[in-house]
Structure formats: structure tokens, C-alpha cells
Design a protein around this nucleic acid. Structure first.
Length: 585
RNA sequence: GCGCCCGUAGCUCAGUUGGAUAGAGCAGCGGUCUUCUAAACCGCAGGUCGCAGGUUCGAUUCCUGCCGGGCGCGCCA
């Protein structure tokens, strides 16, 4: 795991202390543990905490505090890095670094810019990320939106840490759902032509079906009544499918969610891949016939029971095409398959992983991210949605109301597997209570500051020309430390497939910035000092009434430099969420 | 009945894979603009981490059993 430049130095120092202790016979263990660092909960406890002494206590037969104390002694040699060591109960080593060690973080960000936060963790492994994959039988609703935002953010994060990601949408354009769509639309079409028809029992009742039927009527008039009913129904299905899929694509695009490929289920049948997949299973005796149906022996793996793949009437079940689809993914040579699924499908995880194993791959070649339901909160009340009536809140209408940025942020700020309450009023509010604006404002505020600086003729220095030792305020160091965590954070988002950590991080970073900004000045107070950028100001003193602090040209330059790096991280973070980083608000 | 997920402040949720005195945002109360954006900041209050055991130096975190909520258990997708 590539770590921050700061962490590495600290770990090296601890490791050195361990070896010294061993060399001098203070430690008896044959192998030395590799120390891990954690961030203490309280600032008084220093910059890092290390529990290595506690971990060794047992094998060394000594108390953790004792071991920690002798390590603390050795750590005094690392005075260039570690300013202060404290042993705390029950055996922590609390380390406070020399402030200047932290400055390396700022140079690192300056150098990497857009690439700060990227890494090689994935080693170029190829990942197929499948998400949304909503049936083209209706518009996308809020739940799809959450899956879309999540899949998109994951793809950005995985790419950032060195995976090669292909984003795919699986189109269920075969089978029963499409037939029902066709029947539903045809029924509405006939109604529009003044005919009295019985609506299909499990048909789609949503109002959009009537809209689609109207479009068909506008285009073809009554002419579809002249052909056979089955042919007309099929035409209706085809037209409805195309219209609905097109609008899904458009909704996604305007939600800034893109795909590299759209994979058709019908194509799997047409190309014979379904039959081939089942043939493979038969060869391996993982499929068998019973009671006139063909079964997949999924109980061989971790499923509770075997599952039908081909029914008595000869039709395939959806499982058959899903198996074929995943075999196809495997054949395409991906190192990892990731599916973002609605949590209501969790029962299918084990059988799909069983299919992966059936084809000779380890089950964790396929991983699922399950995303829970979204409920909409309006005026503090839940908006009821019912699948039955086909009336649900669409992604499009919510995005129209709150904007893409707010919608994405809200979808991403909770763990995927917990229910999400989407508070429309909060998402629309343009104030500090709204986390999206809070973070975006931090970015815009900095842009505004830099514009003012430029207008006053202040020359922005590069890291080389800045005296960073001028940064001595706790709010400044707090910002730098927070920035140093960003690369690790991005990696953990990707490793655990948990994008929600990033919105939290950004809220904290924005908070740290706003506190700093409120407490300290960056540019001189007085407009008379507009010559600030010129050498003549060196030594001149500006005065901040708020903090009663005196600051110099060096302080101004150092703060500007610090804030540029803050802005870079805000921007990089927002980019990973697919959210705009506005220059002004 | 079986399986999966969830249970943390009044509400919505975090909690760095087992660490120290459990955090944030809303909502509530009270403060802060002669300031580079107040779209901001500060303070107060708020808790039996669902309950009970277990594992160990140490548990919100891991294990077991209950209680409560959601979802799934089709030759439906």
C-alpha cells in the first residue's frame, strides 16, 4: 500500500527504534512486527498513535507501557522527524511530528496536482463494473439514480487507484418483461383508437405507458389496427422499448453517468451463448434434467437449493441468461467483476457466484455492491411510492428540482447498504445546512480569494519560493494533516467499495477551511496595502482585528500556497464524486 | 420457518476492520459581519452504542442467543 510520505518516515523511525532495542537486547522476539499507525481521536494525543508495544506485550512477557517506554527512548534519535513522544495508557506511543515534516505534503500536492490522490494500487487490473441495468420498461426512478451515482463514483475511484475499468449496462431486452411492455402499450394504443380492451393483468400501469402509446398513435395513426394483433403488439413493444431506452440513456447522460458498453440480453440468445453456457454446465454435470425442466446445481456451491434454468415449457428463465452473461464477462478476461445491485436482489448473490465457480473461477471474482432503497422526504414527510400503480418518483424530476450536484452528493453520502432518506428541501437549500453547498462553497470561496489576490497584484508563489515555516497556526497544521490523508482515503473507498467515505472527508476538509478562513486573514486587511505583491511590503505589517495576529509577506504567501493545495484536494475529491467544483457561487 | 442486511443523541447518519473520555449534520437554545463571499464561524444541551452472555490487556466493532425493523426465500425479472 503506497502511503503518504509522512507516514513512511514515521514508520521507518519506529522500525529503527525496534531494531535498536533488539540489538541492545531489550527485546527478545525473533521477528519484529511492522508497526501500524493510527490517527488519535484527540489532538492532544499527537499526530499519530502506534500500538506496537501493546501488540508485542504477550510475546515479550512485559507490560505494554514498559515496552513503549523503551521504544520512546530510542525514538529520541529521530529528532528530525519526531518532535515529541509520549507513552500513554494502556501502552500507546503518541507521536508529535516536527511541523516542517508536514510541509512535504504541500509540495507533494503541488507537484501532483490533479494526480494527487491517484495511485497504482490496482496495478492495471481490469474490472468490469456493471450498474443500473434497469429494465427498459419504464423511466429511471430514485433507486436507479442511487445505483447510477454509486456505480459512477466507484468507477472514478477505481480508475484513480490504478484499475482499468469498463462500465457496462445490461439491457434486459428479452423475455417476459418486454412482452408485458408490448402488451401494455398496445392496449393503451387501442384505447386511444377508441377500442375497449382489457388491460393485461401484470401490465405496466404507469402513466408513461400512455405517453408512449400516444407517440405511436401520433406517428402511425390507426394503421396498426390493420395488421395482425400479434404483429401490432410486437411493433408497439419495439417502439416503446426504443423510446424508453433512449430516455434512460438521456437521463443518465444528463446525470453525468456514462457507460462504455451496453450489453443486450437478446443478443446472448441470438448468438447462442445461452445454450453454450448451459452446455458447459451439463458437461461438468452442474446442470441436470428433472421433471421436464433443466436445473443448475447451484446447491453445489453456496445456494440453498438448485435453480431452474429452462422451464418445462421450454422457455429459459432469467437465470439462464444471467449465467451466460457472466460467463461472457469471464471470457472477456476481466480480473474482477463488480455488480451494483438493488438490495432486494441479495438472494441472488450466492447463485451468481455459484455460476462463476461453475465456470472454474473463485467466487470472489464476482463481487456485488448492494444498494438499499431511497425514500423521498418532502415537507418532512415521506412521499409514498408504489410499484403496483407504477407511480414512483423519477430520477429526472428530482434532478430537475435539486440539480445534479446535490442529487449525486445525497446519493453518495450514505453507506450503500443503509436506507437513504432523500430530503428534497435540504438538498435545495443554499446554505451551510446543505452539505453539498458547504463543500462547493469552500472551493468557490478559495477561487474568489485568488481572484481578489490577483486583482491586487499579488504574485502567487510556487512551493520553492514560499517560506512554509511561516505556517505555525493550529488551523494551518490541521488543514495540512487533513490533506495528507486524502490518498489513503481514496484507496480505502476503492478497496472497500465504499464511496460514502469521500463526502464525509470533504465535509471535514471544507469545515477545516471555513474555520481557518474565519479566524485568519490571508490578504492584508487594508486596501491601502494593495502593493502587497511587491517586494517593498516585505516587513510591512498588516493586522487582523479578529485574531489579533500580525502577519507578514511570508505569511501571506505561505497561506496562499497552502490554500491552493486545499483547493486542489477539494477539486480532486469532487471530481471523484462527479460533482462540480464551482469558481463562484 | 430458513437466509441476508440494519439497530449508535429527538431526527438523518459516521465511526479509520479490536484501542484511549463514542463523533458529525440537522432540529432546539444562545452568541458573532467596519473583515479576502455571513452560502461562514463559535458556544450550550443532547447517549445504558437494541438486550444478555462470550472471546482478551481492551468490544460500538469479532462470536453465540434473544428482541425489534427491512428484504429475500417462484419453472417471475
Amino acid at each position: 500500500m503506497p502511503e503518504g510520505i509522512v507516514q513512511t518516515q514515521v514508520k521507518d523511525a519506529i522500525h529503527h527504534a525496534l531494531s535498536m532495542a533488539k540489538e541492545q537486547g531489550q527485546l527478545t522476539a525473533s521477528s519484529l512486527p511492522s508497526p501500524t499507525l493510527e490517527l488519535p481521536k484527540r489532538e492532544e494525543w499527537g499526530d499519530f498513535a502506534c500500538n506496537v508495544a501493546m501488540a508485542m506485550a504477550k510475546v515479550e512477557h512485559r507490560s505494554p507501557v514498559e515496552i513503549a517506554s523503551l521504544l520512546a527512548e530510542h525514538l529520541k534519535e529521530a529528532r528530525t522527524v519526531i518532535e515529541h513522544v509520549e507513552v500513554a495508557n494502556p501502552g500507546f506511543l503518541n507521536l508529535t511530528l516536527v511541523p516542517s515534516v508536514w510541509f512535504a505534503v504541500l509540495y507533494d500536492i503541488e507537484e501532483k496536482g490533479k494526480d494527487y490522490g491517484r495511485s497504482e494500487m490496482g496495478h492495471g487490473q481490469r474490472v468490469l463494473l456493471e450498474y443500473v441495468s434497469a429494465n427498459p420498461t419504464g423511466p429511471l426512478h430514485l433507486g436507479h439514480g442511487r445505483g447510477a451515482a454509486l456505480g459512477d463514483a466507484l468507477s472514478r475511484m477505481l480508475q484513480a487507484v490504478g484499475y482499468e475499468v469498463e462500465r457496462e449496462y445490461y439491457i434486459n431486452d428479452a423475455g417476459r418483461q418486454i412482452k408485458l411492455l408490448a402488451a401494455s402499450v398496445f392496449a393503451r394504443y387501442q384505447e386511444l383508437q377508441g377500442r375497449c380492451v382489457t388491460f393485461p393483468e401484470d401490465g405496466y400501469h404507469g402513466h408513461y405507458i400512455q405517453t408512449v402509446a400516444k407517440h405511436i398513435a401520433d406517428q402511425f395513426g390507426a394503421s396498426l389496427l390493420d395488421i395482425s394483433a400479434s404483429e401490432a403488439e410486437e411493433r408497439c413493444g419495439r417502439l416503446a422499448y426504443e423510446e424508453l431506452l433512449t430516455s434512460i440513456r438521456e437521463d443518465l447522460r444528463s446525470f453525468r453517468v456514462e457507460f462504455d458498453s451496453w450489453f443486450s440480453e437478446a443478443e446472448l440468445y441470438a448468438s447462442g451463448k445461452v445454450q453454450q453456457a448451459l452446455a458447459t454446465l451439463r458437461e461438468r454435470e452442474l446442470a441436470f434434467e428433472q421433471e421436464g425442466a433443466l436445473w443448475f446445481r447451484s446447491s453445489q456451491f453456496q445456494d440453498d437449493k438448485d435453480r431452474v434454468v429452462c422451464k418445462q415449457d421450454g422457455d429459459y428463465t432469467y437465470l439462464a441468461s444471467d449465467i451466460a452473461y457472466h460467463q461472457d464477462k469471464l471470457k472477456r478476461g476481466f480480473d474482477r467483476l463488480l455488480n451494483v445491485w438493488g438490495a432486494d436482489h441479495h438472494g441472488y448473490v450466492s447463485r451468481m457466484q455459484g455460476a462463476v465457480q461453475a465456470f472454474g473461477y473463485p467466487k470472489d471474482r464476482l463481487q456485488m455492491v448492494l444498494v438499499q432503497m431511497v425514500s423521498l422526504l418532502r415537507d418532512g414527510k415521506k412521499v409514498e411510492m408504489s410499484k403496483r400503480s407504477g407511480e414512483f418518483v423519477t430520477l429526472q424530476e428530482v434532478v430537475k428540482e435539486v440539480g445534479v450536484d446535490a442529487a449525486r452528493f445525497f446519493f453518495l453520502m450514505r453507506r450503500a447498504d443503509s436506507h437513504l432518506e432523500f430530503d428534497v428541501e435540504l438538498a435545495k437549500r443554499q446554505s451551510t445546512e446543505n452539505p453539498v453547498y458547504y463543500v462547493q462553497y469552500a472551493h468557490a470561496r478559495l477561487s474568489s480569494l485568488f481572484r481578489t489576490a490577483q486583482a491586487r497584484g499579488v504574485v502567487m508563489c510556487t512551493g520553492r519560493d514560499v517560506t512554509l515555516t511561516a505556517l505555525t497556526q493550529p488551523e494551518e497544521l490541521r488543514l495540512i494533516k487533513h490533506l495528507s490523508q486524502f490518498p489513503d482515503l481514496v484507496e480505502s473507498c476503492a478497496r472497500f467499495l465504499e464511496p460514502h467515505r469521500l463526502p464525509f472527508y470533504l465535509q471535514e476538509l471544507a469545515g477545516n477551511l471555513h474555520v481557518f478562513y474565519y479566524k485568519h486573514r490571508v490578504l492584508p486587511l487594508d486596501k491601502e496595502d494593495e502593493v502587497a505583491g511587491q517586494p517593498s511590503i516585505v516587513g510591512a505589517k498588516a493586522y487582523s482585528a479578529k485574531s489579533r495576529e500580525v502577519f507578514s509577506f511570508e505569511v501571506m504567501q505561505a497561506r496562499l500556497f497552502l490554500l491552493q493545495q486545499v483547493q486542489t484536494v477539494l477539486r480532486n475529491g469532487l471530481e471523484l464524486l462527479g460533482i462540480r467544483a464551482p469558481e463562484q457561487m
